[in-house]
Design a protein around this nucleic acid. Structure first.
Lengths: 340, 340
DNA sequence: TTGTAGGCGTTATCAT
DNA sequence: ATGATAACGCCTACAA
């Protein structure tokens, strides 16, 4: 004879404790509304049965989940990890739970994940960058799920964002590079169609070039996907196609580290022969040899502020206001004056 | 006059398409059971309303979620990222969704997250390592949620795991180190109370020492939390307390990279003065300078196999069978024969 | 302080 | 091929 062992429900607990389901529910949600004695009785039953509330049912009945979804391009490297950890910490502090999903930088998967998280009752969403189809934004509106864009900052869009201005930051870095005498610049970048951060970074370099009376068209661009190996390959392509290049910007630190390695393998001295500049300032940048000159992104601050804003919105209805954080330049050892 | 805009439900779609809710539901779940014409009609209504099914309701009614939860110690570095990505890819391939939660290596948070994911209807769970309170395992059983342990492998426990034998792998590495003449060994490790992987790695070194007729007690151990800076500090402690040390094992690559840096800062030549050995073989290991000698963990294979096993269990009831994968030794540039 | 009962949005079983 | 309708597990007025 096999014992039936369906997962215990509120009803089971109620029966075991000889009270009504309402009382059990109150025990869980408003413990002070129930008499000490009944409470302990109920709690004991809960423990005994290893009961755990069914989230779906609770969400449906109470119409809120205290859950916020975060959708990032990838978990494959540390780029988003740190910011997300801060976001999560902030949420946890206020009793919220974070759900993460990743998209592999693919728009179709992002849409899928957005639907998945919204369907799961996420009270709000954290999104990376502004660029996505209007349809998705319409969907979010129809579902009345607030979404906060981060990792970017752009006041020209109506949607508030908490982040930094990728274009401005990269422009500042590029100006420094140009000041050091570099005239033949190259950029190893991710595809910019669906990645507004990548595009902004490119525009930033071009801005700096124009400001220095260089023709923006001379920026030699190689597009690739993110990855150390990809960065290496792209670097090689750059130096093959434009051997006069003295400074190679990279869309992020991962690419830069790959470029750095290939440079060494190809016999280039960095930074004497060629300078390499990254973006993000993740751990890799510091560990790389030579240590990478890069743009420092305020990961943790961004994550924290985003969490804070979303929680205020959900708890108090406070509208989110855009916040621009500063990205700073970190000069380490891969940038030097142009040779000759 | 403000337009009401509650999130649309199945009923709304049914009304808009002038059919019953049942038909709409079928359209979504068994499209071929409904006539072409009605289907397009319904689909149009869905689009128009930006309708998206309520996951909680669906889960409650259908008693399954096609969702698997993964609970990892941290997203803060790449250690689990790669394996998780593979896991996710495998799930995605079969129409499952992955939910991730992280614990900061804290048992209380892990329990919380387990409950959260189970409450959210996770059909199964992916867990890292075996070590956790029996109460949690009891809970999982009461909820009838299968859990698969990975990142470890231990047949002495009844619970099946898909992973590698941390102790054996580290033992092999330690033997090599001892073969190179090292007699004064040290270990920078995470706390081993709740981290069975860390403990197994320590035991592996001790096994190798005993096999070589060294006294295991001479292994100088410094415990710390994971982090580059922590690794650096710990390395300094080691060399201060046991200056005769010629080889420092590290619980993972992150610690090792920190140790490496501090070694350089303190004027030690690696590996001439002191050898440093990591564990995991994440990107950092390759990028570090000198490149790190470490134990390669089959991250991707582990993630993929775990996903596969869990899906087979859920879809076909196939019991999970333990799988031992091989961790290999990667000799790069931080290990050399003992000096003199 | 506690119990009763209706409803949340889907799915699935029966009919039709 | 489609439509009613009873669960699913919980919350929350409302009653007692």
């Amino acid at each position: 004879m096999s014992k039936e062992q369906p997962t215990p429900t509120l009803q089971d607990v109620a029966t075991a404790a000889k009270v009504s389901t309402a009382t059990v529910s109150r025990c869980l949600n408003f413990p002070d509304q129930v008499k000490e004695k009944t409470r302990t009785k109920v709690l004991k039953a809960i423990k005994m049965l290893s009961y755990s509330p069914n989230f779906g049912a609770r969400a449906m009945a109470s119409r809120r989940t205290d859950t916020i979804g975060a959708i990032i391009p990838t978990m494959g490297n540390a780029i988003f990890a740190r910011g997300l950890q801060a976001f999560q910490d902030e949420l946890h502090l206020h009793g919220f739970t974070m759900l993460v999903a990743s998209t592999s930088y693919r728009e179709d998967i992002e849409e899928e994940q957005i639907r998945a998280l919204v369907g799961r009752g996420a009270d709000a969403l954290l999104l990376i960058g502004h660029a996505r189809s209007p349809e998705i934004y319409r969907f979010l509106e129809a579902q009345a799920v607030p979404a906060l864009v981060t990792w970017a900052f752009d006041t020209s869009l109506s949607r508030p964002s908490i982040g930094f201005d990728n274009q401005k930051a990269m422009c500042r870095m590029a100006k420094k590079v140009i000041d050091l005498g570099h005239r033949n610049l190259a950029l190893v970048s991710a595809e910019t169609i669906l990645n507004d951060r990548a595009k902004a970074r490119q525009l930033g370099i071009e801005d700096a070039m124009v400001a220095a009376n260089l023709c923006a068209k001379t920026l030699h661009i190689v597009k690739t996907t993110y990855g150390i190996e990809e960065g290496a390959t792209a670097f090689e392509q750059v130096m093959k196609a434009a051997p006069q290049t003295t400074a190679v910007f990279c869309g992020n630190d991962v690419l830069a580290v790959g470029a750095l390695r290939r440079a060494r393998e190809l016999g280039f001295k960095v930074p004497q022969d060629v300078s390499i500049i990254g973006f993000d300032d993740i751990e890799l940048a510091e560990i790389a040899y030579p240590a990478l000159t890069t743009v420092h992104v305020p990961h943790r601050e961004m994550g924290r502020r985003a969490g804070e804003a979303l929680i205020k919105l959900l708890n108090e209805g406070t509208q989110i206001e855009a916040v621009e954080l500063e990205a700073s330049l970190v000069f380490r050892d891969t940038l030097a004056p142009a040779r000759n």
